[in-house]
Every structure is written in C-alpha cells, then in structure tokens.
C-alpha cells in the first residue's frame, strides 16, 4: 500500500518525511547532480513547491522506511513545469493551470527498491498517483522527466503517457514534458498489465487512526486483505493494539475498529 500524506495527516509522518527529503538529496543532488537544488541545514532537499498543497506518496517497508516516493500537487497553485519549464508544453496544448490538472515530480526509489526487487513498490506509487488523482476529479497528471526514462515510461510503467511537447536540453540532461491520463480505464489497465491489486492508496485520517506508526497500520490492513476473514482479523488486531496502549476507552476503540474496517473494505476515497 502507498501512504498518501496530505497537509492534514502530515504529523503522522514526521519521521518518514524527514527521511524522504534526505533521500531526495541523495538521489537528485548527489547521484543525478542537480546542482541548483536547495539542501537545507538538516541535509534534506526542499523546494518552493513543498508547501501545504503538496501531497506525498510513500511506499514504506515493514520497518517504516521509505522504498519509493513521489509528490503531487494541484497545477493551479503552482507547478515546476508551468513556472520554470513552460517551454516543454506545446503551444496548442490545453493550459495546465486548470482545476483538473495536477503535477507529479520527484519520483525516486531508495537503493533497496531499485531493480526488479522494487518493482511492486515503484509500480504502486504510480498507481496510487492515479487513484488519488481520480478520487479528486483530476483528469491529467503532468510533469517533466529526463528523456532517458521516456522509453521505460512508455513501455513498462503501466501509465498511459504522452509527450506534452518537444524536449529541451537543461543543465543536467534533456527535459521532456509528459502527460499521464487519469481515468477508470487507465487504472484497470495498469492493474492488469502490472498485476497489481487496486486501491493501494491509503490516506490515514489523523483524528481516527490508531495511535500507531503508519507502517504498522498498513501491516494490519495488508494482513486483513489477504483472506475473507477480514472483520475478525481486524477486530482482534485492533484489540491487541489497544491493549498495548493506555488511555483508550471503549468508544475510541470501537471508532478505531470501524475506521480500520472502512479502510479494509473500501476503495480509496479522498478524505
């Protein structure tokens, strides 16, 4: 599953977001040599778009460490491609500053999730982007990529990708603007082509989620999805969680169970 980190639930992910910014420095600044990027005192890479509107998608391992990540935001309130690389969008394209367009950027995999071993984590991040976008009524995801990944993006990503314009050289490579189609059909096809189970996006509600690290909640949900005894498994697991936590009354317990059950049974819906 992929954790959807919004303005509202960011407090649940303080640790993971810190690690994400560190890994962004490693991947983009150190490995890819994007020298113009800003590295803050804490060693993380940030830019002006890491604001309240930004949504982060995180694939976590069983210890809560980041496997792969991407970020997405409404293009209407600012986008890298629209503000800095507008020449990557052909003049006859529909404007991207529209409510149904979001921008994706900073897609990377940690070392442990590169190669075939990380295929699922990386694919699920891409699928989650479609699921989140669709739940929000977004029709198009746009972004800029290095031309070197255009071929695998078209053949192996599971996304319906098309070029937004001509490529242009930039300091560290050649930039290509792309658009990714968001639709029910695109999601169904992606799941079939990559053999993914749909509804990977998990947006925890900070007010209702059990007071556990997000990756442990994910572990419970993953277990519950494996077979048909969902309710029993969820109830017993949540009880066990709560037994470990003090100061939880019966009402809160029931509310948590109801919430986890909704998560288990439900398709992703925007909170």
């Amino acid at each position: 599953m992929i954790h959807v980190v919004t303005k509202a639930n960011r407090p649940l992910y303080a640790e993971q977001l810190h690690e994400m910014h560190q890994l962004r420095r490693v991947h983009f600044v150190e490995e890819r040599g994007w020298a113009a990027m800003t590295v803050r005192d804490d060693g993380g890479e940030y830019d002006a778009y890491d604001d309240e509107d930004m949504v982060y998608l995180l694939a976590l391992d069983s210890d809560g460490r980041i496997l792969a990540s991407m970020r997405m935001r409404p293009a209407l309130s600012g986008s890298v491609i629209g503000d800095i690389f507008p020449h990557l969008i052909a003049a006859d394209e529909a404007p991207i500053a529209a409510p149904d367009v979001w921008e994706i950027s900073r897609f990377f995999a940690a070392r442990a999730a590169r190669g075939r071993g990380g295929r699922i984590a990386r694919s699920e991040v891409r699928l989650a982007a479609l699921e989140v976008a669709r739940a929000l009524g977004v029709k198009r995801l746009v972004g800029m990529v290095d031309l070197e990944i255009l071929a695998p993006l078209m053949t192996d990503s599971g996304w319906r990708v098309r070029p937004l314009g001509l490529p242009a050289p930039y300091a560290e490579g050649i930039a290509q603007g792309i658009e990714v189609q968001v639709s029910r059909g695109a999601i169904v096809d992606m799941c079939e082509v990559l053999d993914l189970k749909p509804a990977v996006a998990l947006e925890l509600d900070p007010a209702r989620a059990p007071a556990l690290p997000p990756h442990q909640i994910e572990a419970i949900l993953s277990l519950a999805r494996i077979d048909g005894l969902q309710t029993r498994i969820v109830v017993s697991l949540v009880r066990r969680i709560v037994a470990l936590q003090e100061d939880v009354d019966e009402e809160q317990l029931l509310s948590m169970i109801a919430y986890v059950e909704t998560l288990v049974g439900g398709l992703y819906t925007s909170a």
Binding site: L147, A151, M154, L166
Partner: peptide, 12 residues
Amino acid sequence: AVLQACGVIYAV
C-alpha cells in the same frame, strides 16, 4: 534533443 525523443518513440 528532438531527434533523440523521436528516435526513442520510433524504437518503442
């Protein structure tokens, strides 16, 4: 840059 992009799409 443009020929590279066209070449990639041609190959794919």
